[in-house]
Structure formats: structure tokens, C-alpha cells
Design a binder for these strands. Structure first.
Lengths: 240, 240
DNA sequence: CGCGGGTTTGATCCCAGTCAAGTCCCGTGG
DNA sequence: CCACGGGACTTGACTGGGATCAAACCCGCG
């Protein structure tokens, strides 16, 4: 399931293929691409958007800023993801979208969204599917923040990120995946302080390492180890 | 935005009205109603559903059960809400849906979902809208669990529940709304222990009371007070 | 060489979890 | 009629995980 055949190239492991007719339609539907440099902001929380996007390359994060000034990261954004749909449909994005590395995104006009639904009911169905998957992840995040302790949260997050990046084909020979986020990003994602985030990472160092913008896992056993720690089993999930 | 004109009767304050043609279509699309008694389970996490539902009356909750056995409530479910869509689209629900009071729901066949998208693009758009609103709530929940302390979480949750139930017209003369949940439900929703939930409620008692299945707020000032405590302002949100 | 962003480590404190009792209330059965 | 039990709620005492404060360290850069 996907919206952009272009971004789908990178995310092919995740999504079903397009028919030629759909491809032509999508090429037409797409408005262009957007380049975003590390740290760049695609939209702010509350913005009303004229476009939504799919991620072609690079990684980012969506976060909310609370009244007292601190940040809660809502999710990481990876190649193949769709962002900003809420901002076009409801007139206000629910979070700020920022690039953690240089990114390239495909842009789609809001105005043509009804056309998409009318002309391609399958695409509308795909969007329902994507929304459902998104909801699944947010639900897991809620469970993690609500009920797991620091080391469980950390291994859960790193495991999910790793699996996701492997799925989109970004694992290198050494078994590492790109990880442009800072420890403070992880802290804000997991609801931990920066200091405790660091100490927790130290405890996990025998299993997983974070260095030079890469996340590397020692071996397959390490993955199982992380799953064990996080309290998440390795049985392949039906979604994603 | 809504899917069921029947449930919309209860939730009319929230949703836009149907056209007569849509009404005829929806009546046909709906398969029937479901009665659920207090404690009853509509579906379990992981179930593949043949139907999804809208809530006509009563309240419930969606929760996940973790490996270690404890529960994380993902969201409360109120009249006008749609539940189980993910279970029909992706083949696996993301959480268990349980009734906190007796409930009546409207049921819609999965098999007819593509028809809905094809025949009524507006309805498809409505579903995107609903998904976006849902995502908004889940994001707020994540921010709350990640970054707020016990008393902030509690007043945030009670305020949201209260506002929501007022919006669907369930406030009585005394300014109270039905609240069939137990303190342990609140605990599981907010990621707190039952004991601390109770103590936090005690601290909030000058402002808000929970008794006999009702949630009552002293006055308008109390609402502002809760908003202040929770760190959430009272400015009306664009999304409900 | 100084500076700033990111990371690391140690010391201390406090919010919330855990354990333990006890109350209130209602339904059931002797 | 009262004893019993179980579910929801309450309250107190103790403990610990993670927040906070503080200080380095490392490294690339002007």
C-alpha cells in the first residue's frame, strides 16, 4: 500500500506494486519534490497545509512542543512514510516535522486529494490502510511510554527503528543502519531525561551501538536480546 | 464528518449533517446494531474483523495487554466514535475493545467498504478526516505520557473526557457527565499505579469529583483550573 | 586556542511504584 | 438478621528508578 510510486522505489519491501495506469495517474498527481536539509522544518504544529508528502530519502521526526517548552517526539519518519495528511484534511497539523538528516520528499497537492479518492478508490483504501498502520504504531508507543521502564523503552525503540530501516533496504554490509538522531532526540521520543537516556544506552552497549550517525547491532542474537529486554517478541507482526 | 447517520444523532454537535442521498446509502450500508453489556468485549487485540462499528450509546475503552500482563489503555471510546476500522482494513485490530458501560453500536460490513469508497468519495474523505483526528488524540496522549507528571496527566485526561462528553450532549443539569470507568482504568490509561491514581484524584477533589459513575466539575473556573494544571490552554482546538 | 554541540559520568533528590491495611458497600447465603 | 466475601476506593510507610544538578570529555571548527 502506498501513495507515491517514486518513494515506493525506496520502500519497495514494504508496499505493494502499482499498476501502470495507477503509475501514470500518480505521476500526474505528484506536484514535485522538496529538498530539506538537516534540521530543516517542513511544517510546524498547527500549520494548515496545501500539500502532503511522502519521504523519498533521509530521516526526520515529528514532535510536539509542550507549554513548558519541552519536546515530545511523536514518531520517527523514514523513507516511504507519508507525512502531513492531517494538516491538509483537517486544516491543522498535529506536530512539527523536522529533518534529522538531509531529506528529499515528494509533494502532493491537497486540492487534488478528492480527485484521488474519486478516480482511484483503491488509493483511498490504501490511505485507510496507512492510517491504520500509523495508529498501530502510535498505540505501541503509548503502551511503551505508559508501562515500560527506561531500558525496555530504549531497546524497543532501537529494535523498531532497526527493523524498519532494514525493511526499506538501508542495512549495510556491517549490519548497521543510518541513524542521524541525537541522544536528546531519543530522550524526547522515549520520555526520558537526556542523562538517563545516555546511561541506558551505556547499559545496552554490549548489544547495540550508536556511533557516527549509525545504529549497529552485533548479530542476530542481539536482536533477540533486544526483543527479550523490551518485552516484545520476535514473531513477525501482521502490520508493517 | 461521520460514517453513521444513526450514531450521528447522538453526536450531532460534533459532526456535519448528511444529505438525503447519503442517508439512504448509509442506511443500506449499515448491517445492524450490536448490544454490549458492561464488561463485554467487542473484539480482542489481533482479531481480524468482518465489520467495523460506530458507537451509538455507552462508553468503552480500547487497551493493549503487555507481555508481563499489565494493561495500557489506548483511548476511551465515546458515542459517535468509530472503532475497529484497522481490524477490517489490515486484518488485525491493534487493541482490545471493551465496554465500560452497557453499549449500543452500529455495525458495518467490511465487504462493503470498497463500495463506500467508490460510490461516496466524500465518505472516504470523511474517513481520512476521522483518522486524522484520531491521530491527533493519540499524539496528545503520547505527549502526556512522555512528559507530564501525575497531576498534569490526570487533569488533562479528565478535562478531555469532560469536554468530549459535553460536546456530545451528555452533561446533565448539575454539570456532571457519565463516567463508568474505574480508577484502575484511569491508572491504566495514564500509566500510573492504582494507588497513585487515587492519591492524585484526591488532590484534585476541590476541582473535580468522581462518584457514582459520574464526573462532575464544580464550575467554569474549575475547567480553567484543570486546563492550567494540565498545562493545556482553553483555546478551542480546530479539531475536536 | 577557545568555543560550542554532543556525549559521558558521578552525586543527590524526589515523584511515583510497591507493600500493607483498612474502609465502605453491596450481594449472597446460612 | 447477620456473617461472609469480594470489588472499589483510601491511606500510610517505605523504596527505588529516573530527574536534576554539576562537571568533564571529545572533537571539529573558526
Amino acid at each position: 500500500m502506498h501513495i507515491c510510486e517514486h518513494c515506493q522505489l525506496r520502500a519497495s519491501a514494504l508496499f505493494m506494486p502499482f499498476t501502470p495506469a495507477e503509475l501514470r495517474f500518480m505521476m500526474h498527481f505528484r506536484e514535485g519534490t522538496v529538498e530539506l536539509e538537516r534540521g530543516g522544518i517542513l511544517f510546524h504544529e498547527g500549520d494548515s497545509l496545501e500539500s502532503f508528502y511522502t519521504v523519498h530519502a533521509g530521516q526526520g521526526a515529528r514532535y510536539k512542543t509542550l507549554e513548558n517548552g519541552d519536546r515530545q517526539l511523536v514518531n520517527f519518519v523514514f523513507p516511504g512514510d507519508m507525512v502531513g495528511l492531517a494538516g491538509t484534511v483537517t486544516g491543522a497539523t498535529t506536530a512539527t516535522m523536522q529533518a534529522a538528516s538531509d531529506m528529499r520528499l515528494c509533494r502532493f497537492r491537497k486540492a487534488r486529494l478528492p480527485d484521488l479518492f474519486t478516480d482511484q478508490p483503491d488509493r483511498a483504501y490504501a490511505m485507510a490502510w496507512i492510517a491504520a498502520v500509523e495508529e498501530h504504531f502510535l498505540g505501541e508507543t503509548i503502551a511503551t511510554l505508559g508501562r515500560r521502564n527506561a531500558i525496555q523503552r530504549m531497546s524497543w525503540a532501537l529494535l523498531k527503528v532497526y527493523q524498519r530501516l532494514v525493511a526499506v533496504g538501508l542495512r549495510d554490509e556491517a549490519g548497521a543502519v543510518p541513524f542521524p538522531y541525537r541522544q536528546s532526540d531519543l530522550a524526547d521520543a522515549l520520555g526520558l531525561s537526556l542523562v538517563h537516556t545516555n546511561k541506558t544506552l551505556a547499559r545496552l552497549r554490549p548489544v547495540v551501538r550508536l556511533a557516527e550517525g549509525r545504529l549497529s547491532v552485533n548479530d542476530q542474537d542481539a536482536l533477540a536480546e533486544m526483543a527479550m529486554i523490551s518485552g516484545d517478541d520476535l514473531t513477525p507482526r501482521p502490520l508493517l
